[in-house]
Write a protein that binds this DNA or RNA. Sequence first.
RNA 1: GCGGGUAUGGCGGAAUUGGCAGACGCGCUAGAUUCAGGUUCUAGUGGGGGCAACUUCGUGGAGGUUCAAGUCCUCUUACCCGCACCA
Length: 800
Amino acid sequence: MKYDHRQLEKKWQDRWDAEHAFEAKNDYTKPKYYTLVEFPYPSGQGLHIGHPRPYTALDIVSRKKRMQGYNVLFPMGWDAFGLPTENYAIKHKIHPATVTKNNVKRFKEQLKSIGFSFDWSREINTTDPSYYKWTQWIFLQLYKHGLAYKKEMTVNFCTSCKVVLANEEVVNGVCERCGSEVVRKVKSQWMLKITDYAQRLIDDLADLDFIERVKTQEINWIGRSEGAEIVFSSTAGDGIQVFTTRADTLFGATYLVMSPEHKLIEKWADCISNIDEVREYQKNAAKKSDFERTELAKDKTGVKLEGVSAINPANGKTIPIYISDYVLSTYGTGAIMAVPAHDTRDYEFAKKFGLPIIEVVAGGDISEEAFTDVATGTLINSGFLNGKSVEEAKKAMIDWLEENGLGNRKINYKLRDWIFSRQRYWGEPVPMVYCEKCGWVPIPEEELPLELPNIEAYEPTDNGESPLSKCEDWVNTVCPKCGGPAKRETDTMPNWAGSSWYFLSYCDPHNADALASKEALDYWMPVDWYNGGMEHVTLHLLYSRFWAKFLYDIGVLSCPEPYLKRTAHGMILGENGEKMSKSKGNVINPDDIVAEFGADTLRLYEMFVGDFEKSAPWSPQSIRGCRRFVERVFSLTDIVSGEGITPELEQDFHRTVKKVTSDIDGMKFNTAIAQLMTLLNKIFEVGRLTKNELETYISLLCPFAPHICEEMWEQLGHSNLLSLSAWPSYDDSLTISETVEYVLQINGKLKSKIKLPAGTDEASAIEAALKDEKIADFTEGKQIVKKIFVPGKIINFVVR
RNA sequence: GCGGGUAUGGCGGAAUUGGCAGACGCGCUAGAUUCAGGUUCUAGUGGGGGCAACUUCGUGGAGGUUCAAGUCCUCUUACCCGCACCA
């Protein structure tokens, strides 16, 4: 029979739709399995060839779990708010909502053409008011619990997108999206207090089944560090608080450095004799972006505060105070104690400004460089700390500081609060109004959703305000609290908002009274397996864990973590091994591949190409091999004969069922396919197989290449769907051979092989091995020093 | 600089976790089928040596542990990813 993938794949996709085959049942008595893939941003380019890789992988997992009897939730939706859509809309004068609708339509067709078993009845769209109603509702809860606040701050502003960016969205000093210059601007922003959750976001990783690199990246991003805050008194009166992780080196602190933005400087203006020079430095520092301050200005600069000095609390010595932009105002206390002998940055600064370098930890050569090794050093020149190790000295010093009221233990995090405002149109409106009398007032929950007004001009304004600010009808409102005139917040939420809780919406997507019913959430959550890209680990993954924890705290969710298991896929690279991009001309369109080879072949290829977690180059040659495999499978029907089992194949079948089953669970899709190919080769070698065996074979292959398997299932006389039939089982005892081939070695080198019955004991195995001709040749006249017997594997003779 | 990762034939990649290196696929070679191209089928395919049975070398590099190392230990090189003056 001819294999016509176009006709065949369409037929089964329609059939699955018509029968609602993959809709998750709200039958809360069945065992559930929730598989989740990151929902795409429906861009104008359409589906990328990389999208199907993770989707196919979790489709395989979902299909197998379904066949194993689980109630599977494998949903899909659209993360549709965002800048590219807005920019496209501005350029082509089409409303973003229309652009989104068109893009979604195309994406959906593309996804359907690949045969994913998504539950389309639960499709969601973050730009749908019935969806973002709950995004806004969560924001209001955060506000009511003191976790959303407004703050004047210097922010990163993209000169091209005309929008404030989160720190995470600035890459190498330029806008992550458009690559334009990023400058610093002072703006009043909504902030979310993710820092309150920093410790829990670290601690709770411990029990989760996340791949290790995801855990370490999150932990590093949160950046916990333990140390102490120490107060240095000053000649200006105010104490200067510094944060340090090396309290043990306090005796070696020979100066202080404050960030240029430090608040005490203005307060001390009268005492500082070179205040003009200081202000000049501050001005220059303010002009620099974070990028310039870090990347481009490695060379240390600074100004000494003349007329003010500090006292080292450990030894009472008077030490100078500097300002320098190598000290960040946003971390710790914005001031440091400088210990040039044991910190490379302080060392560099001290060398440049001719400041004293006092060694307090012996073990290095401080005439050459700072000695920073904490494992081997011993304290010297440090009074009561002398002779102690670094760890002992840290503890002793902090104890002493605490006893004398000079300092205390302190834990700092690199994680900053989440800047939640965007001055753009195509996002969720922030449901807050500003009243001159009452300040910021949340809009009543029953007024949600606060819909995005349908305006004509969504171009960004030149002054950095949101396009919504021009929409006066919408902006001017009444205060929900006092009824007086008030103005709506015109900033919208960042595109990370909608994706921070979408996995909850899938549990019960059509609920008008709650973001999802409690029963649905209790049943489906947490997500059992979530796969996504490594690029989302420090943003989306962290943000959504934060929101889930908050919702857990206020009783909406019953689980403190949203995802039990997190894995990450590798990219599909261009043929030349480089990242696919239009400019490099190495982009592959999935539509073309589906048209030429079929969805089954594309799915198999993307799974077979290599380790799922590693990136792999696209190969137009290799995909032919997968197509050949599909065609060979299809021709199996021609050699079906009889019932029961084919003895030559029995063991191979049991082994294959075992391996494919465990490989899917272990994300080793490539070796599962290899195993199915090996079995196929064996079947053709034998030349026949029974109907039952063919049914087993296509059941195993069904998650990978569902269309062709459904077709063959039908040809074998079944009227039901293979996708909803039972997963094959195997008998472990039948995967083990009756005879075992032993490798015979002399001095660790392969010399011969013999077959022995399984379970042969050591003595008889060695006896049999010694009778082997080649072994006899090699051992003749020599002394056997040692005999090594590894059951079922190897017999090795060490001879002299 | 810190953190994480990778390195195996011409190519993509396997290797039950210390036990036959190169499964499976691509490509290539030869033959068959075909008017021909493609397809399909059969055989072969890590390097060196040998007509051959066989032999020797071989998992980025250098050492080491072991009867046995792609796998463990020490050092080292290259590349990729993340963070980056975080005190």
